[in-house]
Design a protein around this nucleic acid. Structure first.
Lengths: 333, 333
DNA sequence: TTGTATGCGTTATCAT
DNA sequence: ATGATAACGCATACAA
């Protein structure tokens, strides 16, 4: 909200010797008029606005237009380079539509409602929910408070919400199949909690397709925290019959596996192949760089445009876009 | 911005059989009235609002109150745990003031203006700029567009902008002095670009206080990118007279130093002490965990409250708060 | 104790 | 080609 004493359209109008209506037409750009604006008048208005430092009042415009011209990007830090790309593409496309972009970092799921206040209170016209958020979150409140909602989610099916499918299950299956195909035989899975989600399912799918069953010994919980994961993987590697590969439900867990491998004298990828999930920024930097399942395609134009299409017409049928996750090959597997 | 067909105050008023004014008093909370509101009326209004799902219209409220009830947190990802804390504390304090918090990630400095549109267009009442941003950025436009601005910066001195001093120079000097005190004699400095900033100054200060001069051989550029830093540090460690300690201008450079040390067979911290700057999240996770200069105190209450004080009264004199960076001891030095 | 009236700054319709 | 004017939804001074 602007400081007090801001220049108003009326003051510009007086300075230019025309009416506020004319000023509005000139300055808001979008002429809804039949005839184009006459050049001399437009110039006088623009000069007056310039001289007075006119900036416009977003609240007034929002009230009148029934649009805030703001969209939100909801995500859970830390995030990888793909979010950078998404942010920048959003900003560019939004600017072309006269919109601005805000970030809504959800730092703890148990505080999500608090973080989402800006959305539920109706400050934004639309919001994009990054992967991993919408499945755990109550979106109906957000849905009611915006004109458009777009979510990266493989399962979400909510009236009037556009979705982007990542096909995570298939991607993890592909990664596991890749390991099997390169001769790995004892592939462990490091899960977040009880392993019943898509990522585990993909792992199990691949084993099954290869005629194997998941060995309970090789499926461990611990990917959620780095410290826990190190302990778990060390234990795994100390067993008489250790795994020759690890698929982790997160990159975090995979980094821990890399560390535990060093601790236990396993060479990566020779003695132990490691694949993470998420394709985070750090995957590029770890030693060795981490092979990770995650986003690859970094062109979000279609989905962002779809969001704006829905902002323009909230009644249009919900769309289902597809941006499959892939295996990003680096040195760890 | 809310969807069309939202419940308005007027509809609530009709349903409750009272006037919009009364509804406004009840629902906006802050009664500017002399007498408290009578219980039965208030109940009827609240029930009607509940039943109709009344949510209020932020644009209308903003226009009337001349406040957007939004504050922004401007930062450059990736960030450490301190930003998590700051965000959550902001959200809590903001909620107590009836405000919501938005994030403004500035992912590339050359696109800062684009990212800051949400501020310069007047969507927020106040903004907090995280460390490292305000010094390189043109803040005057933002200043004019908000009621309050608070910046983490050791140098910024802008009319009407509150600042938080981190005393980075002193902190790096302390870190260097700590190394000197524990017997290190050849302390290298890994800088971002030409070393003329605060961090280098602190390093030089400490050497000087110890009767030493910075050895040009030991001052290298390369902390900006991980890859570059690894090359530079490897080179440093291969020299006939290698350093026994490295102070890096960033944690990123320090991680690279840890990696280069492994490559060259140096044990950390025995053969080589490494200290980073920034105290990022990864510092806790590296092996060994990285000693790093950075934020320690994680209570931002005072500064956030100062922001709100200025939002309430933009004419109050600018404050200068102090939150000194410190040396966070871990295993690498 | 409650209601009436006015204006916040802008946009869009309609008249001129 | 330009200007009056009526909303947009809410908050508040003031009247009743």
């Amino acid at each position: 909200m602007r400081r007090e004493g801001r220049t108003t359209l009326r003051e510009v109008a007086e300075a230019a010797g025309v009416s506020v209506a004319t000023c509005s037409y000139v300055l808001s750009g979008r002429a809804g008029r039949t005839t184009p604006l006459p050049e001399p008048t437009r110039r006088r208005v623009e000069e007056a606005a310039q001289k007075l430092g006119y900036k416009g009042n977003t609240a007034a415009r929002s009230l009148r237009r029934q649009r805030s011209e703001l969209i939100a990007l909801v995500y859970a830090p830390p995030v990888g380079p793909w979010l950078d790309r998404l942010t920048m593409q959003c900003e560019d496309i939004a600017a072309a539509h006269g919109y601005s972009v805000i970030g809504v970092p959800v730092r703890r799921l148990d505080r999500a409602a608090q973080s989402l206040r800006v959305i539920t209170r109706g400050h934004v016209d639309g919001a994009i929910f990054a992967p991993g958020l919408s499945d755990d979150m109550e979106l109906t409140a957000a849905r009611r408070s915006t004109r458009a909602l777009m979510a990266f989610s493989d399962h979400l099916d909510l009236e009037g919400v556009d979705v982007v499918r990542n096909n995570v299950r298939q991607a993890v299956a592909d990664a596991t199949a890749y390991l099997l195909g390169s001769g790995r035989e004892r592939i462990a899975f490091l899960s977040h909690a009880t392993p019943h989600d898509d990522r585990y399912a993909g792992y199990a799918d691949a084993l099954r397709a290869h005629g194997l069953d998941a060995d309970p010994e090789l499926v461990r919980i611990g990917a959620a925290s780095r410290e826990e994961a190190v302990v778990v993987v060390r234990d795994l590697l100390s067993s008489p019959n250790p795994p020759d590969a690890i698929v982790s439900e997160s990159d975090r867990g995979a980094f821990a596996a890399l560390q535990a491998a060093v601790d236990r004298g396993f060479k990566v990828p020779d003695d132990l192949a490691v694949i993470g999930t998420g394709n985070t920024l750090e995957a590029t930097y770890s030693s060795p760089p981490l092979t990770s399942v995650g986003m690859y395609q970094l062109d979000f134009t279609e989905m962002v445009e779809a969001l704006f299409a829905r902002i323009d017409d909230p009644t249009r049928p919900a769309r289902e876009l597809s941006m499959p996750w892939v295996l990003n090959h680096r040195d760890s597997a």
